[in-house]
Design a protein around this nucleic acid. Structure first.
Lengths: 172, 172
DNA sequence: CGACAACTATTGACGTCACCAATTATTGCT
DNA sequence: AGCAATAATTGGTGACGTCAATAGTTGTCG
């Protein structure tokens, strides 16, 4: 059960963001502890918020979060089959088709025929794609900073290490 | 009414779909560290996985993750206006309508007229709803255990505390 | 060698979800 | 009384997940 979760009681006032009627949320209130008693559910909620923030960064580029995920993966592997993208990112193969179509149309990636297997296509990152990814990564850091605002650098480090441990098995 | 929740997920492991060419994933490899260098992106990815696992638990009940979120919130506040649900959960007001419709149809929640304001409806959890929520919570714990498998109890505790700190401002 | 199973990429269909605009009923303000 | 604001609702559009089906290709086995 939830035993001793000590939470710093700092109410961060966010410059006129939600000005409607929301009372400030305090994690020390009992209903709040009960609401987020489960870590998995907590991860789901935070992932949602993080994804929304990332998407708002990407919206002027015309691409979305899934494109960013593909680009990010391509930057690590110097060419990948579409079926690898599907398996590693957890997206349906049919979804990959559209995503790579969009990236190709934007000039950020290319499909090349595989020398081994004429069924497969190898998707590679182009130079403009690499440049774009660098820009977006920079914006991503700003998002992350905003999200992790309540945490000090040491805490962010431990959080990152823990999350990395969890993600290491299963789809990337 | 009783939901026998079986976490039989035929979803991910589809007859060794990944074992053709995928090497086992090791978080220590450089490409892996680079892929997950950003904590915000990492949160997004893990939130996705967590949400998928939760959804696979809920799929036989006919409800989905968003219904669970509403029920979970209702369990903490003894009745809420729909606009409160919208603000706190971050869902669009129009989405709340459908969700509460479904919950009412399933007998897990009720709309009651507000004595103060005849525009508002107060949504309350029913007894069957409370029972259902208990069952689901139990399944949720199994999901969380599966997800947090690489972490020992102390690490899970710190992770939970850190995530709780992050979630305390902004929409629940 | 030839029939056949398995696989890759692709397309199309169906339901869900997020986001926005518009509507109705009600309230508060002045 | 008049009028802006609000709560719930409806409808539309585009993105998204999942599944089924197809064409082209590969490997296997009789």
């Amino acid at each position: 059960m939830v035993t001793s979760i000590v939470v710093a009681d700092r109410r961060v006032r966010k410059t006129g963001a939600m000005d409607t009627k929301t009372t400030p949320i305090d994690a020390n209130e009992p209903w709040m502890r009960e609401l987020h008693a489960d870590t998995g559910y907590l991860l789901y909620r935070l992932g949602l918020r993080s994804g929304q923030l990332f998407n708002s960064c990407l919206q002027e580029s015309g691409l979305r979060l899934r494109h960013y995920a593909v680009l990010r993966f391509l930057a690590t592997c110097e060419g990948a089959l579409q079926r690898e993208l599907s398996a590693r990112l957890g997206y349906d193969p049919s979804a990959i088709v559209g995503l790579v179509d969009d990236l190709e149309k934007a000039g950020f990636a290319e499909r090349r025929p595989s020398p081994d297997d004429r069924r497969s296509r190898i998707v590679v990152l182009t130079d403009p794609g690499r440049a774009f990814l660098r820009d977006i990564d920079e914006a991503g850091l700003r998002v992350t900073n905003e999200l992790l605002d309540p945490l000090d650098p040491a805490e962010r480090e431990t959080l990152h290490a823990l999350l990395l441990r969890i993600v290491q098995d299963g789809p990337t």
